[in-house]
Design a protein around this nucleic acid. Structure first.
Length: 709
DNA sequence: CTCTCCCT
């Protein structure tokens, strides 16, 4: 058939069907690819999406924006870029770009496509994620490129019109990460300047209309998309009908008093009375998971001999890598059934094969940013219907499944349809800085697909102004603001890094910022005994000046120990986290080399702890707290009561620190401050005189001067 | 008295 080359007249549509295959074989019930032993060419024709090929290609000729709806396993991510390549969208040096929310996804999908096309990864097909890319730079032969959405957002800083790309596919857009939402707004602007650009939004659930309407420039009330076929609409929806296996959903007739107990009971009854198949249980957090795993194991023990037949495992992000793998890999032969208790990590990020039963407790931990206090906290909330549907779908990948929801059907109907997009529950400073750097000054009127509150935007502007990234007219400051926007870290950390030249502590600042980027520097040992050993290991590395100096000591000792994994386990440190920090440090150092002021050097402050703590304060002067006579800490900014987190060395060793700077707040039973260091109150006024002032009167009292632009 | 998940 004739394929269309962009910029020429569109071809007539021909229909190319796989020969020798009946309708059913080519379609309906096939989701997870059971034909993996067939040659790629045949496999591709068996995918549900193959039947929608012509529809997709037609829609892309006719409409500027296409929303592609199809469930996971339909082959969207791997097939659509190939269709576009085959039909001319990559001719004339242009590239089809496909974004993924996660690094592993970008890499594995790229590898799969390269394999199907029979070419080398890094040739026609390539990928780019942070710290790892395989694209053909020199010959620029790469025609299909997979990237993380975060990386694409950075690319907009250097090429705002994204001129290399003929089609941009945003995959998994329904997850509505901050990156997705900002990219959607930006692409809508880019499209005005580049009418030939095609945008494809790929979404697994039924929020297709939200995306289509967002990109619709021609709107006429009361005209549905069906009626308006062929009119001036410029966006449309294409659905892929291929489905995965049916999942039967069961509800409780009465709300449970304790969902954890209910989850355990449900698992036990599945083990007792359901047929073969592994079980995946969704719980909100690590604590609940550990408790459930222990309880189920106890019950199995009591049943006698069952503990060897049923394998019960936890799965969450703070688990060491090899234990995460254990939950994903097929168990040994004598195990009849695997039961995984998992957080949301199993909802999108990790896929466990062979799951036939889902138990959904109906709750999730979500980060919520409190605009008033500026604290970000984890709140256990009810899942959305979209999320519950996604969880249920995890049982239907290899065969028909069952999903047990630990709430009533009525409760399900009252759940909100979608999880609140990240952009509406986050600190927006970073995002505002990106938009400003792109020349989008009016952030209040930026076309968000979900508008954040005016207060949240104000708070972000206020922070950026206080950091010196914006001037009093809310414009990006020519030197500091522009540099901060380009750093791959949040604005406060970027400020800290850039200020390090003034304090002659650049080497230490780099290490510190890199370590603050990674989670789980310390491992999480179980049992009292290993905890006591960990305490001793911590005491050995702890600094009386606080956590920042302690982090530096950890990194230095690790380097001196030849970055040995053994040294890490002796000190209960996570080698993967430290290695990752080292990578980040290297990248940040390269940025600083570019931005180094004339005549400055990469100095080390060695043992000058004060220099480093002052430097930290240049980025985090917002985050100061003081110990008052009642023995409690209060934030300096608005007198909010807070406490030291139990992991902070200041909570453990030495005399109590009266004034402290902190990087982070976690709210559990109350707000806890993490990554804290001892400071002098005078430093606050020296380093942020625009923000702090003497309150006058007796003693040291400091007030904040609110200066909002 | 202890962290959902992801990303530059």
């Amino acid at each position: 058939m004739a394929f269309w080359k962009p910029g020429t007249a569109a071809p007539q549509l021909g229909l190319e069907r796989p020969t020798g295959l009946s309708e059913t074989e080519a379609g309906d019930t096939i989701g997870y690819n059971p034909h993996y032993r067939l040659p790629f060419k045949q496999q591709k024709l068996l995918l549900p999406i193959a039947r929608a090929r012509e529809n997709i290609l037609y829609a892309l000729e006719r409409y500027k924006t296409v929303v592609l709806v199809g469930e996971t396993g339909s082959g969207k991510s791997t097939q659509v870029p190939q269709y576009l390549h085959e039909s001319g969208w990559t001719q004339g040096d242009r590239v089809v770009l496909c974004t993924q929310p996660r690094r592993v996804a970008a890499i594995t999908v790229a590898a799969r496509v390269a394999e199907e096309m029979g070419c080398k990864l890094g040739g026609i097909v390539g990928y780019a994620v942070r710290f790892d890319s395989r694209v053909d730079e020199g010959g620029s032969r790469t025609r299909i490129k997979f990237v993380t959405d975060g990386l694409l957002l950075r690319e907009t800083l250097y090429d705002p019109l994204l001129s290399a790309y003929s089609v941009i596919i945003l995959d998994e857009a329904h997850e509505r990460s901050m990156y997705t939402d900002v990219l959607l707004g930006l692409l809508k602007k880019v499209r005005k300047r580049r009418p030939e650009l095609r945008i494809m939004i790929s979404s697994a659930t039924a929020d297709a209309e939200t995306f289509r309407d967002f990109f619709e420039t021609f709107t006429y009330k009361g005209v549905s998309s069906e009626q308006s076929e062929g009119s001036n609409h410029d966006s449309t929806i294409v659905s892929i009908t291929g489905r995965q296996h049916a999942v039967d959903v069961f509800y409780l007739s009465k709300a449970p008093r304790n969902y954890l107990r209910s989850a355990v009971d449900t698992v036990l009854s599945i083990i007792e009375s359901e047929g073969r198949g592994d079980v995946l249980v969704f719980l909100p957090g690590m604590e609940e998971i550990d408790e459930a795993v222990v309880t189920v194991k106890e019950h199995l023990n009591a049943l006698g001999g069952m503990e060897n037949v049923v394998l019960v495992l936890p799965l969450h992000s703070s688990l060491p890598h090899h234990l995460q793998m254990k939950a994903l890999q097929p168990p040994s032969r004598h195990v009849e059934r695997k039961v995984i208790f998992a957080t949301n990590i199993a909802e999108t990020s990790l896929t466990i094969e062979g799951i036939r039963f889902i138990v959904d407790c109906g709750f999730v931990k979500l980060p919520v940013y409190d605009v008033r206090t500026g604290f970000e906290s984890l709140v256990t909330t009810s899942v959305s219907r979209a999320s519950a549907t996604q969880r249920a779908g995890r049982a239907g990948r290899t065969g028909p499944g069952k999903c047990f929801r630990l709430y009533t059907e009525e409760a399900f109907s009252t759940l909100s349809a979608h999880t609140t997009p990240e952009v509406q529950r986050s600190n927006l400073a970073w995002m505002i800085l990106q938009l400003k750097a792109l020349g989008i000054d009016q952030v209040m009127t930026f076309d968000f697909i979900a508008q954040p509150s005016a207060e949240a935007l104000m708070r972000g502007l206020e922070l950026l102004y206080a950091l010196g990234a914006l001037d009093d007219r809310c414009r990006l400051t020519p030197d500091l603001g522009e540099k901060m926007a380009e750093f791959p870290v949040e604005p406060r950390l970027a400020k800290l890094l850039l200020a390090s030249f003034d304090f002659h502590c650049t080497e230490e600042a780099l290490t510190l910022v890199a370590l603050l980027q990674v989670q789980n520097v310390w491992t999480n040992p179980k049992g009292r005994e290993s905890r006591t050993i960990q305490e001793a290991a911590m005491a050995e590395l702890a600094s009386r000046d606080g956590d920042h100096l302690t982090l530096l000591a950890i990194y230095r000792e690790w380097e001196e120990a030849g970055r040995s994994t053994e040294w890490c386990s002796e000190h209960f440190l996570n080698p993967r986290s430290l290695t990752r920090a080292r990578e980040i440090r290297g990248q940040l150092r390269r940025y600083l080399e570019r931005y180094k002021p004339k005549g400055s050097v990469f100095a080390s402050c060695v043992d000058d702890s004060e220099a480093l703590r002052r430097c930290v304060l240049t980025g985090f002067f917002f985050n100061a707290a003081r110990l008052k006579s009642d023995g409690r800490y209060y934030t300096v900014r608005d007198g909010h009561p807070v406490a030291l987190h139990s992991t902070s060395v200041l909570a453990k060793y030495g005399a109590p620190a009266e004034w402290i700077v902190y990087n982070d707040v976690v709210i559990t039973s109350e707000p806890f401050l993490r990554d804290c260091s001892r400071i002098q109150p005078l430093w606050l006024m020296e380093l942020a005189p625009h923000f702090y002032a003497y309150g006058g009167g007796k003693g040291t009292s400091i007030s904040t001067s609110t200066n909002i632009c």
